[in-house]
Design a protein around this nucleic acid. Sequence first.
DNA 1: AAAAAAG
Length: 710
Amino acid sequence: MAPYNKGADNRASDRPRHPNGTPAARSSKHRGFRAAEPTAPRQKQRWDAEERRGRSAQGERPARPNWEPRDSGGQRRPERDDRGGRGFNRDDRAPRRFDRDDRAPRRFDRDDRAPRRDNDDRPRRSFDRDDRAPRSFNRDDRAPRRDNDDRPRRSFDRDDRAPRSFNRDDRAPRRDNDDRPRRSFDRDDRAPRSFNRDERAPRRDNDDRPRRSFDRDDRGPRRFDRDDRAPRSFNRDDRTPRRDNDDRPRRSFDRDDRAPRKFDRDDRAPRKFDRDDRTDRAPRRSFDEPERGKFVPADDVKLAKLQAESTVASDVEGVTFGDLGIGGNISRALQELGASSPFPIQAATIPDVIAGKDVLGRGRTGSGKTIAFGAPLVEKLMEHGGGTKRKMGRAPRALILAPTRELALQIDRTVQPIARSVGLFTTQIYGGVPYGRQEGALERGVDIIVGTPGRVQDLMNKGKLDLSEVVISVLDEADHMCDLGFLEPVQEILSATAEVTPQGNRAQKLLFSATLDTQVAALVEQFLHEPSVHEVAGEDQASSTIDHRVLVVEQREKDRVLEELVAGDGKTIVFARTRAYAERLADQFEDAGIRATSLHGDLNQSRRTRNLQLLTSGRVNVLVATDVAARGIHVDDVSLVVQADAPDDYKAYMHRSGRTGRAGKEGTVVTLVPRGRIRKIEGILERAEIAADLVQAAPGDGIVSELAAR
DNA sequence: AAAAAAG
């Protein structure tokens, strides 16, 4: 194995050269460094700024959704040293992404890649986006769509999503490869459903989700097609010739086949929509009941969803955080975070948390779960807080656990301002960073711990962290926290928390996830007491704003297809199964002149944080990640999620795809599968209750560039 | 089987 770090001299010759022949030194500290052309990275920035202005000018909602960390737009985060003003000057940082030396020490040998870079216009390309102009022709079509931004409203009111449906129709012509007329026709087929979004709201008003099932039944006849579907998948070979002469129209047949899959809810209906159970509140609120009752034998892989009390968007109209029991200071803090009024999941869970109950909350990805537990948690601490407030060396009284460090950080960014608004302190306890600061914070005394299991356990065992006064514990991504490897530490940690409050009430446990199911049974039985279960009606994946596609690709063509897919201008997250593949892909994209970076467990924490920030800030367009980024991570305006490897299961699919389409925005999810995995991905889609177009694709195909352009 | 989470 070659040494990681070749000498600087070696590498200098590998380095891309500027047009003028000087080596493209990679930072201002390097000789030969040239600042990025001001045009390049800024173009995107300017566009963002305009977009943002456009939104706030409409005054429809704050510039950011209400769960999103305040700083992700580059606003104040003074306490984060690693940001040190960089966010204000993109040009500073643009070169850094070519700072290969920094990245080299990772376990990936860069040297194989050197030759590719030699012929290289890479720096030019990266510094000057004009090289990519051809692609941006399509952008012209799209710009207006995004500019006349009616979407922000959707995040507050699902009914406002109607315009999007119309946009759908607009989009058909935009595809402008007219060899696909049938497809737009199919779109029209689906349109009635979309247009009816407005009509669906009233239906939700009188809380009749069963009616939704009936709606599905209207489509029942089409279910016969369902049986056709499987053969279709397995007869892919028949279709290959068709593709050769590129007559995409045939895909429209897929659409037809597809519809039934989407609407064939019947097998699930009993589980999720059965209102009869729900008229009786007792069983609904009990965890055990649904667990025993709702396991379906055929459902051995997909665990039964928990029977939940459903809240609908219209329930929330006119409700304020104050109405839910949140105090004035916290409400103002929420307002500053962009949460002027509660989202459905928040309206559903906050009162129960404040009432002291254990809560299981299921809300779609990006539906505002962080505030749903964060705000009432702080409120409760105020309540039992009293005299211990701000006492030196006080033990924490609340604990929030997340499965990844990035998510813990992100949660803290939301919870910290809420806590501060009432004089409480949070601290982050997660691995990969020095102990000193965390231990120091604990010694000074904190009120709320936000962290990951490993380090929390570590500090517990070292006697630095006393959880015995923790009266509210939150598990975000709770189902994942029950996975092998997580469950045991989590159990140990929860066991170390208090059982009762100083006032003699039961200590609370809150479990949240977009895919909360009976996987959490072990924890629930062990730690929760008569939890109330909440979900948000009409917010399943099928009703989301995400367009799902599956591309069947030849294994040897996959990387080239990927490269074309990520070449678009929108922010893209690519998911890979392994760290090595994620790294390799990021390198490949960079070599192709695409601004890309990676996020996975082989990177040290500072690089993980930085690389994620590169995407958040828009300095790169493409993040190639393992499933470390699958859950919870919020990045503004991710327009495309690409699954270079199909997800393991339906949950992974839902969480990965939930990185886009947030706050009611549109997004596209493209999953690449080899021919042999078609059946598998169809099973996943079905369990996720997602309808997706499935089509073969090869490099250079229109469908690929079309998906990339968005 | 991989990834995540402690070092």
